[in-house]
């Protein structure tokens, strides 16, 4: 259960996360509404009397966020070490790895995973980059603001399912 099949994908702008998606790749199990994206942080609800599993899930979710966010510093560092947009794995914590892709406009795509192939993730980032460019061409989307578009969300999830499961 520790290296869960859950992937965490985050887009980080200049000073805040713009988009978050928790992607469950174990397609057989529950397609529950894991996380409805939008909004920053993860401190929304979660009160009441959650079952043990839920509690565990929440714990691992928090841990995932923590790992991702703490990797940000390493991203800043490795940006200067290469001219590639794809920075590969920038951080490892236990079995969890953080891959990063930085766009030309310095928007960071970060994916937390349990050790997927470099090429696969590169392709996934490439695909998402395409969607991101499309999104930023939308006159109603302002650069470096949270991404609320449902279409974008659906596309990213579909891409994640196609490439990463």
């Amino acid at each position: 259960m520790s290296s869960s099949p859950v992937l965490l994908f985050v887009i980080v702008g200049k000073n805040e996360p713009l988009y978050e998606a928790e992607i469950d790749t174990s397609s057989s199990s529950s397609m529950a509404p894991s996380n409805s994206s939008g909004g920053a942080g993860g401190g929304g609800g979660g009160a009441g009397s959650p079952s043990q599993q839920q509690q565990q899930n929440e714990l691992s979710t928090r841990q995932n966020y923590f790992v991702l966010h703490s990797a940000l510093d390493l991203v800043e560092k490795s940006v200067y070490s290469t001219s590639n947009m794809y920075l590969r794995v920038v951080d490892k914590v236990n079995q969890q790895q953080v891959s990063t892709f930085v766009t030309a406009a310095n928007v960071k795509f970060m994916l937390l995973h349990g050790g997927k192939g470099e090429e696969v993730i590169k392709n996934f980032f490439g695909e998402v980059y395409g969607y991101y460019v499309k999104l930023s061409m939308n006159p109603f989307y302002k650069y470096d603001t949270p991404i609320m578009s449902k279409a974008f969300d659906a596309r990213v999830r579909a891409a994640a399912r196609a490439y990463l499961s």
């Binding site: 061409m137 109603f140 603001t145 609320m148």
Partner: peptide, 19 residues
């Protein structure tokens, strides 16, 4: 309207309701 996507109805940040 090639790239356009109107903000969603409940979207306060971009004034979705008005748009």
């Amino acid at each position: 309207a090639t790239f356009v996507e109107l903000p969603a109805a409940g979207d306060e940040q971009y004034n979705g309701d008005d748009l």
